[in-house]
Amino acid sequence: MTSFWDDKPVLIAGPTASGKSALAVHLAEKIGGTVINTDSMQVYADLRVLTARPSLDEEARVPHRLYGHVDAAVNYSAGSFVSEATAALAEARAQSRVPIFVGGTGLYFKAIARGLSAVPQIPAEVREAVRGRLERNGVEALHAELAQRDPMSAARLKPRDRTRIARALEVVEATGRVLTDWHSEGQPPLLPPGQFHALFLAPEREALYARIDARFQAMLKAGALDEIAQLAARQLDPLLPAMKAHGVPPLMKHLKGEITLDDAAEIGRADTRHYAKRQFTWFRHQLPEFAWVKPEEARGWLEQELRS
Rank of each mutant, 00 (worst) to 15 (best):
Q195V: 09
D213A: 15
H183C: 13
F216D: 02
A229K: 13
A198P: 04
E289T: 15
P159I: 00
G223D: 07
T260M: 13
K244L: 06
D263R: 12
Q230D: 10
H285P: 03
W182V: 08
L179N: 05
H246K: 12
P189E: 06
K158P: 00
K256I: 00
I267D: 12
I165R: 06
W182I: 07
L287D: 09
G186V: 06
W182E: 05
L240T: 02
Q187E: 08
A265C: 14
Y209N: 05
A276F: 01
G176D: 06
L251K: 02
L236S: 00
G247D: 08
A232W: 01
A222S: 14
F216I: 13
R269K: 15
A222L: 09
R269M: 09
A242F: 13
H183D: 14
A229G: 11
R167T: 15
K244G: 02
W292T: 14
F290W: 08
H254M: 10
I165W: 07
E185D: 14
E258W: 04
H183A: 10
L261Q: 12
Q286N: 13
T260N: 09
L225A: 01
I228D: 03
G186C: 05
L261W: 03
H246A: 15
K253M: 09
A166S: 14
L157Q: 01
K294F: 02
H246Q: 15
L261T: 10
G257S: 11
S153L: 09
K158R: 09
V178R: 08
I212A: 10
E266I: 00
L261F: 11
P193W: 10
H285E: 15
A218W: 06
R278I: 01
H285A: 15
F196N: 01
Q230R: 13
R167C: 06
W292Y: 03
L201Y: 04
L251V: 05
H285R: 10
R177G: 02
P241M: 08
K221F: 00
P288M: 10
A242P: 04
A229L: 10
A222T: 11
L208R: 02
K256T: 01
E204M: 13
R284E: 12
R177N: 11
E206Q: 14
E258K: 09
D181V: 01
